[in-house]
Amino acid sequence: MRTKRRNRVIFVSSLVASLFVAFIFIVLAMNENVDFYYTPSDLTSSKIINKDSLRIGGLVQEDSIKISKDSLKTNFLVTDLENSIEVYYEGILPNLFKENSGVIARGFYDYSDGIFYAKEILAKHDENYIPKEVKKALVNDS
């Protein structure tokens, strides 16, 4: 009987301990790897957002894409039809990246030069598709 009770204590305490460890893990990982989403208007407003990693979404503004001829550097403007932000990206652009279509950029915003340095550009694989965030920004503006 005593072993039975001892085993039960071991069970319960190991369960509690592992749940606790799991919880700590999740909270830490969440803190580091959650990206907040903003619109160009959020960033150009007076409130300063200092985050290493965030997402902006909107439409690629017409006639704003400048692709370098000999490197992977690209500049373009992302707009929510009210404000726009210059985005700099070095890398391969997704297939559906084009003017007047939805785009999400992940990176950081440099307030000193007003450029959003993107680490990743997402454009979704469906031409009817507008990212939920973009749709919301567009609806809010209209």
Partner: peptide, 29 residues
Amino acid sequence: LLGTIYPIIYEIFSGGDQITVGAPYFNMV
């Protein structure tokens, strides 16, 4: 599951702020 639905939960409780949980979260945990 938590990492997958966390953005929905967050959006509901923060009044519309949107987030995404990146792959590093899943790898790390």
